[in-house]
Nucleic acid binder design. Structure first.
Lengths: 232, 232
DNA sequence: CGCTTTCTTGAGAGAGATCAAGGGTAGTGG
DNA sequence: CCACTACCCTTGATCTCTCTCAAGAAAGCG
């Protein structure tokens, strides 16, 4: 059981990480959370279900999506270490508005609602990080909405999805953007509100036009500006 | 100058209101904010500009939107008394991601970033309300994204826009939903990601089918369930 | 080396955008 | 009181883009 993760010795801190906190708060965090190891392709939160706890992601990536009854899917974002799942629902005491599924083996820390609220109210830093974490979720949702509403063409939507992904995961930024693209065409389609086939066709077109290059999981956007301009 | 609004005597408190706070916090709030009266059709925040203050809405409604270079528009929500503008941007220290325009004469209270952060960190209740306010923004953005991505048909998108609006502004709920609909077809189109003409045509169709009834600004949805089912 | 998952490419149809022209209503000012 | 303007709504015709259906290729995995 490697689930004995300690928040105090944890290495994954960063400006985008909820658990970047003063030592005192980390001690508290360590006591109130229950660690979990979860396999890939498991559902952590299910849309529509009541929210009684939050999950802090310690390791692994988790797909955040919303679905319609008709089976249509919207991929909102991929959450990673330092993100908190279920925050907005806990705060508002509503049902979950999204579904969260692990896409690889993950290490989470679950905290019951009441304990989390106490934890938050007990420290200004925790409060601020909580608000920040929700603000990040907000921005991801807004990006999705923008993409879907403001692009007139399918090309624009896909370009926007790729650029947004690049901004969050870029490795090099020497004019061209290079990054890991683990998403399938199906998943990109769900991000951009397109059909799988259209994504395939557009990526082929982008490749021919020299805008995009893909070797395995490594994707390069050679002319971000040109892609941007498709956004219209 | 009726801009001498006091937070302590202010009547518009509610569960959805940022300024529903203990008396002590209200005293603080009263000292740090500068009241403003603003005419209709004025821009309060402009997308892309840097965020140096938040605005609490005391009176009036404000349109929150995002635009593309091509002039295309997405209407995210209509904010009202008790909402806070620019919160997410202040917290993340990014540029504004949305534009806010008054749609009627408004009374606002502006608070510089530093003062607001101090205010927030100084009280658990303010912190919690801040997080809550951002969570509400998140939910609105998510609703927009859902609507745009998950509805296959234009009818579904419009139905979803109407239902979401109804949920936020309903008056009666005796099977049928009745509410004020001050939005023009153009604005509804921006909410649903459709063209103005399509909105006109669909509303006409809904009227013929007995789903929707409109008398001036008063709109009634007679069969919410049927509208819902269009969502697919 | 079969099996599943993912990608590729083609052909056809339909929904909605766009363009266009006209009508209704409210506000303004002579 | 009436012209005039501005804004919004309505309806029609056309055309294009993307979805859908279909059939197969490629690639990863036990």
């Amino acid at each position: 059981m490697p689930a004995s993760h300690s928040c105090i010795t944890c290495a994954i801190r960063g400006p985008q990480c909820f658990c970047t906190l003063p030592a005192l708060d980390l001690l508290d965090l360590d006591t109130i959370g229950a660690p979990h190891d979860i396999a890939a392709n498991q559902t952590v939160l299910r849309e529509g279900y009541s929210a009684d706890r939050v999950y802090i992601i310690c390791k692994g990536r988790i797909k955040i999506s919303a679905a319609s009854e008709g089976g249509r899917l919207l991929l909102v974002r991929i959450a990673g270490p330092g993100d908190v799942l279920g925050l907005a629902s806990i705060l508002r005491t509503t049902n979950h508005k999204v579904t969260a599924e692990t896409i690889e083996p993950c290490q989470l820390k679950s905290i019951p609602r009441a304990a989390f609220i106490d934890f938050m109210r007990g420290s200004p830093d925790v409060s601020q990080n909580t608000a920040l974490a929700v603000a990040r979720e907000y921005e991801a949702a807004l990006l999705s909405a923008r993409r879907l509403a403001l692009s007139t063409s399918a090309a624009g939507k896909l370009a926007s999805a790729l650029l947004d992904w690049a901004r969050m995961n870029h490795i090099h930024n020497n004019e061209a953007l290079e990054f890991a693209m683990p998403l399938t065409h199906e998943e990109l389609a769900c991000m951009a509100g397109l059909s799988r086939e259209t994504v395939t066709r557009l990526l082929a077109r982008f490749r021919v036009e020299g805008l995009v290059d893909q070797q395995g999981e490594r994707m390069t956007l050679h002319e971000p500006a040109k892609l941007q301009s498709l956004y219209c």
